[in-house]
């Protein structure tokens, strides 16, 4: 069976985007922008297609890098293989909490 994949868009990125729904504990191959398998990751929770996986341990306050650029800041520590999204990351430009509070 073909292994599921996640794509790292820039070699500076600390997250990769999964290109299929992946389950907790499942082996996922992380592809570099050149299309090479650079590492095997194990999601520690279910992550759906198009969502992000932490490639390494991220501390609270650490910048999340995708496309080689900062896309937000970790609100809490995120373990390797963790799901990286609005529950644990906020925009540097617009804190998610602020958006929630406005609603």
């Amino acid at each position: 069976m073909k292994m599921k994949k996640a794509i790292q868009l820039d070699d500076k990125d600390n997250v990769a985007t999964v290109t299929d729904d992946v389950s907790k504990g499942e082996q996922v191959e992380v592809l570099s922008p050149m299309g090479e398998v650079i590492l095997d990751a194990k999601p520690i929770e279910d992550i759906i297609f198009g969502h992000k996986l932490a490639l390494r341990k991220l501390d609270k306050g650490e910048e999340i890098i995708k496309y080689g650029e900062v896309i937000g800041v970790a609100l809490k520590p995120i373990a390797v293989g963790g799901w990286v999204h609005t529950h644990n990351v906020e925009s540097g430009r617009l804190p998610t909490s602020e958006l929630e509070a406005e609603k």
């Binding site: 198009g50 900062v70 999204h85 609005t86 925009s91 540097g92 430009r93």
Partner: peptide, 15 residues
Amino acid sequence: NIDGGLTTIEEKSLG
């Protein structure tokens, strides 16, 4: 956008 996996406006615009 958010359901699709985009976490922040920066990420969306970078794409």
